Structures are given as C-alpha cells and as structure tokens.
Simulated scan of single mutants.
Amino acid sequence: MPQKPDPLWARWGAELALLRSRAGMTQTDLGRRALLSKSAISSFELGTRTPKVHHAEKLDNALSTDGTLVRLWRNLHKQRQVPDWFLDALMLERSSREIRQYQSILVPGLLQTPDYARTLIRLREPQATDEHVAQLVKGRIGRLPEITPRKPLLWFVVDEIVIKRVVGTPKTMAEQARHIASLVDDGTIRFQVLRETGLHPGICAPFRIMTLHESKAVLCQEKAIGDEVVDDPVKVNKIATLFGAMQAEALSVGESLALLREQQKEFEQ
C-alpha cells in the first residue's frame, strides 16, 4: 500500500523538486551527485519520506543551492513556531523575488518587532503558554532575516492608522517606528503611507502579491484565520494594478519616512 505523503515534508519535497528542475537534473542525476538512490529522491519530493538534516546538506551541495534546503528543513522542523495555516504562505514568501504588501490595520508581520508581535499574539491567544507565545514570536521576527540575503524587492503600503494605533505601549510603538525607519534607511524595504484624509484605493482587505519569477506571481489575501492563496493571473494582475494605484496615492518613501519619525517622537514623549 502506497505511503501517504506528510503535508509538512511534501512542502520541502516540492522545493527540492523545483531546485532540481531548475538545475536541469533528473532524479537519477541528483541521486548520483548526492550519493542517494533515485527512489530516495522521489520519496523526498513526494513527501512520503522524512528527510534528515544530513540529507538536506547533501542535496544542497549537489545542487549548489547555498544551504537553501537546510534552512528550509530547519524551519519546517520547528514548525511549531509557525501556525499550520501559514505554512503555504511562508513557503511562497521564502521563494519570492518581489513582495508587495498592503496593510490597512497592523504593521506587516515581516516588519514587526518582538514586543509588537508578542502583544498581538497574546491578544489572539490569551490562553497560550509563555513558551508557546515565545516560539510564535521567534518564528515571526525570524522571517525577514531569512529572506533578506536574497535581496528581494520588499515594498509596503500601509494606512496611516497602522503607524498611529497603539499596540501595547507607546514605548513598543516608538521601537516599532524606529525599526521600520532603519529598514528604509538601509534600503531593505520601501515603505509608503496612505493618509487618513479622504477616500483612496486602499479601502479593502490586506493582501500580498508575491512574484516567484518573471512569469509567475501569486496573491495572498488575508483572512481571520490564514491567507487564501490565489494564482489566477487575471485576479493577480487586477490586484497588482490596485497596488500601483495605492503607491500613486500614498506619500512618497521620503515623506512617509518623515511622518514615521514624527510619530516615533510623539510616542517617545
């Protein structure tokens, strides 16, 4: 009887299959280079066999992927740091060349500080243990360092309320504003603010557009419990056009940075 795939490791297997395909290798080719059997490669890609870290190391070496599979293995191995419903979006995030995000309510997860993230998680899961909350915080704040070495384009547009709403304490918000400003200053992200006055195209639910390669982009629409991933090109292009309209209506990056620093000073007083 065929073994049932493990949903978690099937995600790792899908990344392995993608990297192997990009390298122009068959499963047999990769097996020879990594000193593994073709059946082992096949079962890893299907998610029917759980890889060990030394398998990931061998495959990274064979594919010259600079530790990609090891990093993914470690992150999936510690999946308890990430809610199950977020794993698909997380996989896409790590593979994206561009991430464009609109947020109308809260600071985007990629940009959150530990105190800001801890406050939100504790509010959402009031009965969670301190250990569980700490694990979730670690998983959230570890996402940005995980993707920045690849230097993807990270562009955020937020409603003004995002930088004004007090989540936690004024000290928490001052640190959060300082953190975002530093990411703008060092060129890690581009950040724009839509002013509160009047109507603008951003009166809608939060979303992310993640470009995987030249001809493939997906849309992640935020919901109460998890993101819905949409890969219909017509729908993705429609939201990409909407994001462009938001960029046009928002303050420039420089103006947004100045507003962010003003808000930081207010929180510090």
Rank of each mutant, 00 (worst) to 15 (best):
L19N: 06
G67S: 05
Q127N: 12
V167Q: 04
I141F: 03
P51Q: 07
R178P: 07
A177N: 04
S256I: 04
P152Q: 04
E45Q: 09
I105H: 11
T119C: 12
K52Q: 11
A134E: 12
T50G: 06
L219D: 09
I121Q: 06
L46Q: 10
E45G: 02
T211F: 10
T188I: 05
E45L: 08
A40F: 08
R74F: 06
L123C: 14
K58S: 15
L259K: 07
Y102H: 11
S182N: 08
Q176M: 03
D159S: 09
L242A: 14
K78R: 14
A224E: 13
M173E: 03
L63G: 01
H132Y: 08
Q221P: 03
K265W: 00
L30M: 13
S104K: 06
E175I: 00
D60S: 08
I163Y: 01
R178M: 09
H77N: 15
R20I: 02
E131N: 09
R71H: 02
D6T: 03
R22F: 15
G168A: 10
A181L: 05
D231S: 14
L59A: 06
A56W: 02
A205N: 13
H77I: 06
E214L: 14
T26V: 03
A62L: 07
M210A: 15
K265C: 01
I209D: 02
E262C: 00
R100E: 06
L111T: 03
W12L: 09
L123F: 11
A250Q: 02
L87F: 10
I105P: 00
V53Y: 06
E222D: 13
V236Y: 05
I189M: 01
N61H: 10
R195Y: 05
E57D: 00
R71Q: 09
L16F: 03
L153M: 01
E268G: 04
L219E: 06
L111A: 10
Q81M: 07
C220W: 03
I99C: 05
A14T: 11
G226L: 14
P114Q: 11
I161W: 00
F44C: 00
Q135C: 12
R97H: 07
L212S: 08
V229M: 15
Q127E: 14
P145T: 01
N75P: 01
L35C: 13
Q103A: 11
D185I: 03
Q27S: 12
M210E: 13
Y102N: 06
E175C: 03
L72T: 02
L18D: 11
T188F: 02
I161V: 15
L30T: 04
A258R: 07
F86I: 09
Q192G: 05
D66P: 04
K78G: 15
I209G: 00
A258N: 10
I225P: 00
R178I: 10
I105G: 07
H77W: 12
T113Q: 09
I99S: 01
I147C: 05
V158A: 01
Q112G: 06
I239K: 09
E57R: 10
A181Q: 04
A23C: 00
V229W: 07
Q79A: 15
